[in-house]
Design a protein around this nucleic acid. Structure first.
Lengths: 161, 161
DNA sequence: GCTGAAACAAGTAGTGT
DNA sequence: ACACTACTTGTTTCAGC
């Protein structure tokens, strides 16, 4: 069994906030050697807990001011796969999920403005064979956005599957 | 006016994929000096295009196997702010947006399993004063997830607001 | 606005406990 | 499993073009 101790948790908390934080500084903070930090991060990577470090880019600053979630209804359920293939070709669509409930597919779109969003939906998404219709949930504001909580992870056995 | 040239675009493409990629290596790739990479990244930070580097953690590996989008209906629109405050206190809720359309608020939840999700909704979200009801869109699978496209950014004037 | 060199700091690997 | 040391590599600054 893989355990997940206090050191792992603290390291995760720190590199999740700042992926470029020097390992030596993390080591100082936690009062451990920097080679231990190195070893633990290596293991976290091996276990698949962390994969890569990304610089977060601000979509708004790049000109994408309209964020919208969109639910997609299909003409028939069996069209799902081919619709996903069609959606993948539209660069404005950043995320695509199969979901339960009223829609078959749920996507996230970033567009320049409402007009651009409308064009993406009407001229591209609606033309994909199998799409019956869409409902848009335009985000006026994102109140908060944060990573998963790591509290209680050091105690719980969350790796047993 | 802030311009955004080929070098900026290439640097962004690289550090977005790997925030720990050595600047000197980026410089080699682009055949420029490493101090230029350093200068450009500094400017991108000043402009707010990039803010911080994050290590991406795999929620599934940490035991959160149920991802769900949830639309929230309010008893009356004026409850919005206090409902957001209530939602903020629930750690399983990772994102919260004001949206147009059928719901007032749209959230993203990561729970351990369906039972956990149900508990979060029934024992916490539904008890927040102002919440009339919720509709869940449980993600069976995430087909793709990617950052915004940077194509054509070097040409377009996207900083003029 | 960009380069190149020099000083400094961090990452990495091997060894020993 | 961890720490220490020596070695390699990257970062940062600044003078000069």
């Amino acid at each position: 069994m893989n355990h997940f101790d206090y050191v792992d948790q603290q390291i995760l908390l720190q590199i999740r906030e700042d992926a470029r934080k020097p390992f030596s500084q993390i080591a100082d903070d936690l009062k451990i050697s920097n080679s231990l930090v190195h070893q633990r991060i290596k293991k976290l990577k091996q276990r698949g807990v962390i994969a890569k470090a990304e610089f977060v880019v601000d979509e708004k600053q790049l000109g994408f001011r309209t964020k919208s979630y969109v639910g997609i209804r299909l003409r028939e359920a069996r069209y799902a796969e081919q619709v996903v293939e069609g959606l993948k070709k539209i660069p404005e669509i950043l995320e695509c999920n199969y979901v339960s409930g009223h829609y078959a597919i749920f996507i996230l779109i970033f567009a320049v403005d409402n007009h651009h969003l409308r064009k993406v939906l009407y001229e591209q998404v609606h033309h994909i064979d199998g799409v019956a219709g869409t409902d848009s949930f335009i985000c006026f504001d994102t109140n908060f956005k944060r990573p998963v909580s790591l509290d209680s992870l050091a105690k719980k056995n969350v790796y047993d599957s």
